[in-house]
Write a protein that binds this DNA or RNA. Structure first.
Lengths: 385, 385
DNA sequence: AGAACTTTGTAAGAGACCTTGCCAAATTTG
DNA sequence: CAAATTTGGCAAGGTCTCTTACAAAGTTCT
């Protein structure tokens, strides 16, 4: 139908008049009026007032009715659970970061998420039943065959068949999507970060673990098993690959733990986190400098492989290390890549989204999906209403 | 329009009756009749006769008019130039393999290709002017900005700005497409080989050089600069990466030259080509076995990186080494990958298309593009005719 | 061999949908 | 306050496709 095109256009343009819609969609005025009447009956859009100031008659402006749908985004991280509830236009009405207790069973986690969701809905002046769609960002790989999470050691119990289906209980049975957290961060980068308007890019996530989200033609690429971008297993650095089985070579040398281990090995004292090393480097500590140089070298070698395969236009560094030390790493990594890459080195940038990347990505996916859902549902019952 | 759907369906089904088309497209019988009348007036399809045998009235069968378009596929290889001329349904009407003189200038090469094209057109009972589209497969990367070929040392002179435009002269100014040969081989594998029906796969080409073609969602993925899959630069094997600058580490250890070099280093005598080594291995030569094992190991390590990034459903080995030694390599490579890959190892197969892969891929691209071209052209002048 | 049945192809009618053209309403500008 | 301009609504017309009905041409059964 034509209503779909009009609906999509209103999202793109915000407050908009009929003639503007006609212009944008290429449809005629009567068609636009008809479509708007239907959309208004379906309570998807609403008139917002007159725009005066231009010559001629004042135009009646329409906008999406924000309360036509609600999206809940949930980032299930290692230490925190983050939630955001937004209306259909994407304005976040309620937000919460909650430290995780650790070692919860799936049931316990779902129960606490459900409680938080109720609180958020209250705060937003909505009810849990109004939630159109929930998007969960989790570590590991969501195996849809068995509804379980693989390769997610920090979520014990979720590797069991059917465990993922428990998440339906968070928002009273509303539809939900489960996506890898790094993949969501990549989508967040594409929607709100440096990936805007870039067709092909990769987000490399370096933190406690290492992963990569790949965006091709503006859409997430997951691979055949949903394991695309699992670069923690890239053969990088010295040593027998078999020694590090199960964790991945790149991950063991380049992750936060790897940075701390190397710093300690080189003689730094009192280092308990990667951030300590970066702070020391900023203060001019020569050992920390060497650690950083080694880290940049490892990252560059990993990126060389990624670039050879994918030839992206842009690589964004995210995750704990990307956020904390991105500014220190971009330069050396780019320099090192010049020696490793055949053609032009793609842009390398540090993510500006910080710890919000996953949640923002979840919201971006959720909003586009929710818009389709809401439209489908409303149009299905249009003839009756 | 609806004619497009009907046209596409006839390609898929071959000889087909109106009721079958109605069934397949979901359109009604009168609509099909109308569309067929238009297509016939445009000389895109033709009635081919009655099908009797079924109960009821005999159905009039229609098919694509093969002479409605011609596609020329050209594989510009290192030692040979291969050409094939096919009609719009894909039947190859004329075929030619010509050894290259070596060291030709672009003008000389184009002139000899143009002469061969004339001969092929004669053989096929067509004229050069009938050719709808030409597809060229070349080594290196086609830079569309400058109309030149990069990273193609075997095609001297083609790195100059505008050189690629000379190719228009091969088939009297008909539209043409220039694509990397390995990428075309991947598309060939997708259209006629093991890649049929596989959404995400990679074709790894190992011969004199090394490359990879990536198919994602059934379509070729080229990357931002057209350099996706240039895996010759993957950091694999021992040694200083800088030593092998310009050639790529993987390429220097795993290509045909690399195999010969390793065999000689390990003490084999009289080895001049990789094929000698494989023949010896088949005859039970222990040194050749070791060379093969090493080769399998190198390939597996390279594939481990590719798989970690792309998570393909299938990896096909092609090119000289893939074709000659695919059967010997598949086993050891797969075994080795089990130790290097986190999740399930994708299928690894040796291409069955042999030296035809590039040409078949060029033909596959050419046919789909030519169908669109022919349709567009014919429908544009329909109102008049 | 002929009647009955099945399938195919065409013609006519009807309905949905969108556009064009025209006119009234509302606001700014001179 | 009138002219100009833009907006919104209404009516008529055209295009496209489907449904229905029927004629045509084959097969199968008796």
């Amino acid at each position: 139908m034509n209503e779909r095109a009009v609906f999509a256009e209103i999202f793109k343009l915000g407050k908009v008049s009929r003639p503007e819609l006609a212009q944008a969609t290429g449809l005629s005025k009567p068609t636009i009026s008809m479509a708007l009447a239907d959309l208004e009956r379906a309570r998807l859009v609403r008139p917002i007032g007159l725009r005066t100031g231009n010559a001629g008659r004042a135009a009646l402006l329409y906008e999406i009715r924000p309360q036509a749908g609600w999206v809940l985004a949930v980032d299930i991280g290692r230490e925190f659970v983050r939630l955001a509830l937004a209306d259909l236009v994407g304005d976040i009405a309620a937000r919460r970061d909650e430290p995780r207790k650790g070692g919860e069973t799936p049931d316990e986690l779902v129960a606490s998420l459900a409680e938080l969701t109720r609180e958020l809905a209250d705060e937003a002046g909505a009810s849990v039943g109004d939630i159109t769609l929930t998007v969960f960002g989790t570590p590991g790989i969501h195996d849809k065959e068995t509804s379980s999470l693989q390769l997610a050691p920090n979520l014990p119990g979720w590797e069991r068949t059917g465990a993922v289906e428990l998440l339906a209980g968070v928002a009273a049975g509303a539809p939900y999507v489960v996506e890898n957290d790094v993949d969501l961060a990549a989508l967040g980068e594409g929607a709100y970060g440096y990936g805007q308007g870039v067709a092909h890019f990769a987000l490399v996530w370096i933190g406690t673990g290492i992963g990569m989200g790949i965006v091709i033609d503006g859409r997430l690429y997951r691979g055949a098993q949903g394991a695309a971008g699992e670069i923690s297993y890239l053969p990088v650095g010295e040593g027998d690959p078999l020694v590090n089985r199960g964790r991945g070579m790149l991950e063991s040398v380049a992750s936060a733990d790897g940075v701390v281990a190397l710093a300690t090995r080189l003689g730094m004292r009192g280092v308990t986190s990667a951030k300590d090393v970066f702070d020391a480097a900023r203060a001019g500590d020569p050992i920390a400098d060497r650690v950083l140089a080694t880290e940049a070298d490892h990252i560059a070698h990993a990126l060389a492989g990624v670039i050879a395969v994918l030839d992206p236009e842009l690589v964004v560094l995210g995750g704990g290390i990307g956020v904390q030390a991105g500014d220190l790493l971009i330069g050396p990594v780019t320099d090192c890549l010049r020696d490793l890459v055949a053609l032009r080195v793609p842009m390398i940038r540090a993510s500006g989204l910080g710890t919000e990347a996953v949640l923002l990505g979840a919201m971006a996916v959720g909003l586009t999906t929710a818009r389709d859902l809401v439209f489908e549902r409303a149009v299905a019952q249009l003839p009756a209403g």
